[in-house]
Nucleic acid binder design. Structure first.
Lengths: 122, 122
DNA sequence: TTAAGTACTAACAAAAAAGTAAGTATGCGA
DNA sequence: TCGCATACTTACTTTTTTGTTAGTACTTAA
């Protein structure tokens, strides 16, 4: 839960208003969101498929991150009224619009991580 | 301080190893880093210049975020042995190499934020 | 002589994010 | 009828991040 009247919350709002980059970080930042988006870029997936595809994620965290992505309009949740239940997650158009950006971030990250390993090995 | 043996810390390490995107988020994510990088892309700046340019940041946080950027090799700290002291911060080559990515994130963020405001106004 | 400016640091407190454990309802196969 | 599978939810604890306050040492201007 957020406290509306904390300096922390006010600072975040302030930055989100002024800085598109911070806004992006706010939307796609979060421990498991990169992994979720990465998987969904390949196509729709069921809840438990995602869970198995992302090692280490707990149910609570997976749901929480999916809900946040849904709130921000990147992910759509489709519920099929079946038994056993079936819920599929897929990217919205807005979600898909992140692809180029995410690839850019992925490429930069992979490159940078390599450099760090070279330095650490010396 | 990080606890090396927490699930939290282990999960983060796991993700950083496997996902370039998560690595990038780890390096440029943090409340004030977007603002710092944005300012330094224009050229070198003194500590207090940065502080005045970033409304809301406290000294402790500004220093902490600068140190992290320095550790990751994005920012260089230049100390001039003068009185009063002068310390200038500037982007390294690696820091500059983020420019295209940051602009991409900035553009996406600005676009998405606009959409959200349109939706909220209805 | 007092205040302001320089660039910080340290000890601490508050807030937010992440993780743990157990429980929900339903149906199917053994 | 026991356990497993589906897709979660709730209450709670731990860890991490962010913010607060006061202090450092030096110089110049009022």
């Amino acid at each position: 839960m957020r406290k509306q009247d904390s300096t922390n919350a006010r600072n975040e709002e302030l930055i989100l208003r002024n800085c598109g980059m911070a806004y992006t970080l706010h939307v796609i930042g979060g421990r498991w969101k990169a992994s979720i988006l990465y998987n969904l870029l390949e196509g729709r997936m069921r809840y438990n498929e995602l869970r198995r595809a992302i090692p280490g994620v707990s149910e609570r965290m997976l749901v929480a991150q999916l809900r946040e992505l849904e709130e921000h309009g990147l992910v759509k949740r489709n519920v099929f009224p079946e038994v056993p239940p079936r819920v599929e997650y897929e990217l919205t158009e807005l979600g898909k619009s992140t692809e180029a950006m995410l690839q850019c971030m992925s490429a930069w990250g992979n490159m940078h991580r390599q450099k760090e390993q070279v330095v650490a090995a010396q």
